[in-house]
Simulated scan of single mutants.
Amino acid sequence: MLEQLLIETERLLLRPWRETDAAALFRYAADPDIGPAAGWPPHTSVENSLEIIRTVFAAPETYAVVPKGSGEPVGCCGIMFSESLHTADMKRGEAEIGYWIGKPYWGRGFIPEAVGALLSRCFDDLALDAVWCGYYEGNAKSKRVVEKCRFEYHHTNRDIATPLGDRRTEHFYVMTRANYTVLNVARER
């Protein structure tokens, strides 16, 4: 099992979820504009959020997104591996990054910052070959994150069943180790 760690960026701490985060999680995840865009139902109570922390968010490499100085999680990001529940058609040595953030924090660049840190974790620490990222048609904010983080379009799957029981079109993007290396070399110049 992978060691869950604290990842620090310029403005964020990415840390494991704690049971004491349930009220904060509920505050953001109950919003009907958050979960359904990503294919999951809004949380219905603090107890529902606590159960999500104990089950879904207990998965390795699942992080609370915490703005520095706040102490409170305002979103979630994580790395999902080929043997876990995911939507990309991954091979061994590949993973998918997923994310969401509470509406009061939209447009602040927190999720691209978190995804950048997870890409570093994937390629520098976990030695993965490729990282996938997908979003459902119509989720313009998620599309913007994928583009801002420099993933490359790979393919589109239509008529995909979601945990909400509906069917959607999902667009998949990928970043290979080679592309990540080139982007990092360009950033260092």
Rank of each mutant, 00 (worst) to 15 (best):
G39S: 03
F57Y: 11
P36K: 13
S45A: 03
E47C: 13
T62N: 15
R54D: 05
V56C: 06
E72H: 02
G69P: 05
R54E: 03
A22Y: 04
P73D: 08
G69N: 14
D21N: 03
G39V: 08
P32C: 14
G69W: 01
K68Q: 04
P67I: 11
P42D: 02
R27P: 04
P60Q: 06
T44I: 04
I52V: 09
F26Y: 09
S70A: 11
T44D: 00
S45L: 04
V56W: 14
Y28Q: 06
V74F: 02
L50M: 13
Y63F: 14
P41L: 03
A24Q: 02
F26S: 08
A24V: 06
V46W: 08
T62F: 03
F57N: 07
V65D: 11
E47Y: 13
C76T: 03
E72Q: 05
D21S: 01
P60G: 02
F57I: 13
I53K: 06
V56P: 02
G71R: 00
V74L: 00
D31M: 14
A64N: 11
C76K: 07
P36Q: 11
Y28W: 15
A38F: 12
G75E: 05
A30E: 07
I52S: 10
A37D: 10
T44L: 02
E19P: 02
P60D: 15
V56T: 05
C76M: 11
V56Y: 08
N48P: 02
N48F: 08
P42Y: 08
T55G: 04
P67Q: 12
S45I: 01
P73E: 09
S70G: 07
G75Q: 08
A58Q: 14
E51C: 01
G39F: 08
A38R: 00
P67F: 15
A23F: 14
V46D: 05
A29V: 05
W40I: 01
G35Y: 04
Y63L: 03
I53L: 08
C76S: 07
D33V: 15
E19H: 10
R27I: 01
A23N: 08
D21E: 11
P42R: 03
E51H: 13
R27F: 09
P41C: 00
G75F: 03
T20R: 07
P41I: 06
V46K: 00
V66A: 08
A37S: 12
T44R: 06
P32H: 14
H43E: 00
G35S: 01
A64L: 00
G35A: 09
E19S: 03
G71S: 02
F57W: 15
Y63A: 01
V74T: 03
D33N: 11
P32R: 10
T55Q: 05
P42N: 09
L50W: 13
P32I: 04
E61G: 15
Y63H: 04
V66N: 03
I53M: 02
A30M: 10
